[in-house]
């Protein structure tokens, strides 16, 4: 398989990473090399194999419904790019 420059731009947009035409072109070549490597997977028959999404075959541990966290917004917001009145500020959100 081979990615087009447009596909590269599309996934860059999905990932919210600005990409120039020249970068898209260079990236395309690298990605295609990598996908050639990845493509080796198709050689093996995996029919009937259960996908493995975790390194352990265990089940989820659950916590009790207890409030354990205190208000730390002053500390957390001390490292924020832009805050006002306890809110994080971003360019206007249009719904």
């Amino acid at each position: 398989m081979s990615l087009s420059v447009d596909e590269v731009k599309k996934i860059a947009h999905l990932a919210r990473i600005e990409i120039s035409e020249a970068e898209a072109l260079a990236t395309r070549q690298q990605l295609n090399d990598i996908f050639a490597l990845i493509g080796q997977m198709q050689a093996v028959n995996t029919e009937g194999i259960e996908p493995m999404s975790h390194a352990q075959d265990l089940m989820l541990r659950l916590r009790d419904d207890v409030v354990t966290e205190q208000d730390q917004h002053a500390l957390f917001q001390s490292i924020a790019p832009q805050v006002e009145g306890g809110l994080y500020l971003v360019p206007r959100v249009i719904e």
Binding site: Q82, E84, G85, L87, Y88, L89, V90, P91, R92, V93
Partner: peptide, 13 residues
């Protein structure tokens, strides 16, 4: 997202 005017920005709670 709170859309009151914060100098043309939105506030996130």
């Amino acid at each position: 997202s709170l859309h009151e005017d914060f100098h043309g920005m939105s506030g996130i709670d």
